[in-house]
Amino acid sequence: MRNLRMLSPELRPASAREFPCIETIDLGVQFGELSVLERINLRIAEGEFVSLLGPSGCGKSTLLRVLAGLLHASTGEVRVQGLPVGAAATDDGRLGLVFQKPLLLPWRNTLQNVLLPKELEHGGNAVGTLDRNQARKMIGLVQLEGFETSYPSELSGGMQQRVAIARALMSNPGILLMDEPFGALDEITREALNEELLRIWQSHETRLSTLVMVTHSIPEAVQMSDRIFVLAPRPARLVEVVDIPLPRPRSPEEPELARITAHVRRLMRSITCVA
């Protein structure tokens, strides 16, 4: 399964494509009278890196929350591996979640923060040696060795978000949902963390295979993803799916990448003008 993402979609065995990893069918969300999402149909294959791109406040975060099972769909449905959210058939269907803010608990050091999901899973305060080792491994994966006993106030914004990623990977999810994970960081830190994210996604130390990232940055979406779902605002609806069949790492100077970037930019401008 792991190598699936290395193959192009056409070469993947039919069985894996039969049930999309994540699928939404005519998904709609209303907050009272206000329609936030309208008839969203997504099909995300296992091993894919997809971006949900749209202008700020277009409802893409709401969409991610529905995918995560934190919000219920008003109409339509969400399926993970062909089943409702939370009822995943295999471990590969388990979800990890990274928010825009790191959301670390300020009274816990790095190790304790990363162990939080395990504590909540087992109940009580007891975590085993196995969990501790797993936590140290994840802290290593996000390159924070040596900061195990540091408190969030002693870490930079980028480091805090690394801790949040390590924490999300603790349950060894097959799918990682990220809501503008680096949106609050400066440009340089953001680029570094994007590279890190690709490295983690491609590394074999986790089960992580499918990645869904909400972003409003066109370069970020084009650099990172296999496909971009472009969303128009109020209510959010899917306007186009942009394929980026280019190998990574990608250089912005590449003509094909520049062409796609220009296309997405035009697309975004037309959406934003309407809004």
Binding site: A68, G69, L70, L95, L97, F99, L103, L116, E121
Partner: peptide
């Protein structure tokens, strides 16, 4: 958001 995080961890 913290409460959402805890909900995501099924606390």
């Amino acid at each position: 958001e913290y409460r959402e995080l805890f909900r995501a961890f099924k606390a």
